[in-house]
Design a protein around this nucleic acid. Structure first.
Lengths: 142, 142
DNA sequence: AGATGCGCAACTGTTAATGTTACAAGGTAA
DNA sequence: TTACCTTGTAACATTAACAGTTGCGCATCT
């Protein structure tokens, strides 16, 4: 699959779910539609469940569905649930006492944090209900 | 080395160069200071040369130095020179005619472009001359 | 019980990036 | 000119992160 695949998969799936919130979907079906593997789907959706966006059930009529109304789930919620921060983190505290490196890290980190806040802000302006093209009644809505 | 290493290496090196613009530095010395390999240094600095930020010379007294005054080189210049865009690019035009996927890509791409503009804007507010901690006369300035 | 679906752990590709080696070409100094 | 030094680049090895895969245990419904 491609890069940033986790976010893409998550948003794609939620986009479909938003169109029919009550329906239960199996990871196998979701995987087939997204062109990936059921286990990968469970891993990604599992993160969303931990964040309280989704609910999963075992058993015969099991599967996945939204934990709350689609208009109450924004793209920012999904982004944060996946915990893929922009911030480099840079845990390399190699005690490389180079003042340039310290100053650099300080400046860049500050900028990245501000930028991430901007990203979250912008993502929070769109709900998963708003993600759909025109009125597709086919594809995954069968 | 760590992730985002190209940007880190580039900024780190320019940060030092800004403190002594006239001096010529060998890739071997830069590599030793940054804890990496001379060839890696040449690859990264090569991008900066193509962008007109650095000049390199062969020969006995060869090496690298800034192509212009340090106060005229911003972090944004370096970021753009390395051509590492945030935008996912997503070249996977799998003709996967799923309207949700299209709408999703459209929305997210737009947000990412806006965020990248914010990032560039913020980076352009700092020059490489501003990157230094207090007054370190030691370390690489010998 | 049997069928179905999730949860999770362990393992195997795959891919992108860095690290490494080697050598040609360019330039300086004696 | 010769000797030496440094960049430029190609080719290959190593690594790390991630997706994909398999297998099996547990839960739930008919």
């Amino acid at each position: 699959m491609k890069r940033n695949s986790r976010l893409s998969l998550a948003l794609h799936t939620l986009g479909h779910m938003a169109r029919d919130p009550g329906r239960m979907r199996k990871s196998a079906d979701i995987a087939a539609h997204a062109g990936t593997n059921p286990v990968v789907v469970r891993r990604v959706l599992g993160s969303l469940r931990e964040a309280g966006l989704l609910v999963s059930e075992s058993g015969h009529a099991g599967g996945w569905r939204l934990a709350r109304a689609p208009q109450e789930i924004t793209l920012a919620d999904v982004y944060l649930a996946l915990d893929e921060r922009l911030t480099a983190a840079e845990p390399t505290a190699e005690t490389h006492d180079c003042s340039v490196e310290h100053a650099l890290h300080f400046r860049v980190s500050k900028v990245m944090e501000e930028v991430e806040q901007t990203l979250i802000q912008k993502l929070s302006e769109t709900t998963i209900l708003a993600i759909r093209g025109a009125t597709d009644q086919k594809s995954m809505s069968k």
